[in-house]
């Protein structure tokens, strides 16, 4: 486990760098008070707001306060959701909507969408890739190639709109967006899953072609195993490492893709929160959302590493230290 501990340490440092960058960059682009109250607000109003938001303290003090809060799981208070602009002593609970609450409220929806998108894409991509590798140069192979190329090159935003027009507007099968029942997730998951679907299918296909030419496949055939088991267990498990690598990459892309897809479908996830925070110049929420996304990415990378060791018994966590 020392490897994992060290990795966690690196991740924490990475997060601190991200946080610091967002914090200072956010302050550098302008005075949040002017952004909030507009150009014509009076100096007294601005001064009052800065006081209430704690923006009059020295920047470094604000920064240490923020980082200190982070350590205790406190992401600060939204500038715009709730009533942070009011004097804190007016409220028993300190005033303002905690960013942590906002982020935690949105995170499950993003995870849900990403899980459905990736799960669906992965299942379909593996089947597509395997079929293509089992019948190379057949019409199935060509179909898989065309489909995966198309889904990799398509722009998610555009795909989302096309899906809405086709399935919600013309066919009326599914809602145009929103969140609620399980059918709400289908279209956004399709839009979000298209890219990983294509990428994973392509990688699966080529990795499977490699694996199917290996001696252990001939040996497995020779002992009389059914072909489906040879493909789905023997070859696929060995093709797993490139597939997991690309899936990890795609997961990171998925998080960025979620920002667009959530916006198109009005999906109440972290991406949507991030866009709103950006539009509202709500620095604490923006920081919190970016932090959440960065944490997701780091956790995903760690999971990918752990999956490697499962797929390739020769690599153990301790041996990867070198």
């Amino acid at each position: 486990m020392p490897y994992l501990v060290r990795r966690a340490g690196h991740s924490a440092i990475m997060l601190l760098v991200v946080v610091s960058f967002v914090f200072f960059a956010g302050r550098m682009i302008g005075d949040p008070a002017i952004v909030m109250l507009g150009a014509s607000a009076s100096d007294t109003a601005l001064e009052q707001l800065r006081n209430n938001l704690g923006l009059n303290d020295p920047l470094l003090m604000q920064y240490f306060r923020y980082v200190g809060g982070l350590v205790q799981g406190d992401l600060g208070v939204s500038f715009r959701y709730g009533f942070a602009q009011m004097p804190a002593e007016r409220f028993m609970d300190g005033g303002g909507t905690p960013v942590m609450g906002l982020v935690l409220a949105r995170l499950p929806q993003t995870l849900y969408l990403a899980a459905v998108a990736l799960g669906g894409a992965l299942a379909l991509a593996l089947v597509m890739g395997c079929l293509a590798a089992m019948y190379p140069r057949s019409w199935i192979d060509h179909l898989v190639n065309v489909l995966s190329l198309a889904s990799v090159s398509v722009v998610q935003f555009w795909l989302g709109l096309v899906l809405i027009v086709l399935f919600a507007v013309h066919l009326g099968w599914l809602p145009t967006g929103g969140y609620g029942s399980w059918y709400h997730v289908i279209l956004p998951a399709l839009a979000l899953g298209a890219r990983p679907l294509g990428r994973v299918a392509q990688v699966t296909r080529s990795a499977m072609l490699d694996e199917m030419a290996r001696p252990y496949v001939a040996a497995a055939r020779a002992k009389g195993l059914p072909e489906h088991r040879i493909v789905s267990v023997h070859a696929l498990k060995n093709a797993g490492i490139p597939v997991v690598t690309i899936t990890g990459d795609e997961l990171v892309q998925l998080v960025t893709g979620a920002i667009l897809v959530e916006t198109v479908f009005g999906w109440p996830g972290i991406g949507h929160l991030l866009v709103e925070a950006l539009n509202n110049r709500d620095l604490p929420v923006l920081q919190g959302a970016i932090l959440a996304v960065a944490t997701l990415v780091i956790v995903v990378n760690l999971l990918v590493d752990i999956t490697y060791t499962y797929l390739n018994p020769k690599v153990s966590l301790s041996s990867r230290e070198n």
């Binding site: 709109l161 507007v169 809602p175 145009t176 967006g177 009005g266």
Partner: peptide, 18 residues
Amino acid sequence: FEFRTESSSRMAMIMAGE
């Protein structure tokens, strides 16, 4: 009141009768 940032998404809602 449904929140849809994208104007095309709002358009789709009325096209779909939502």
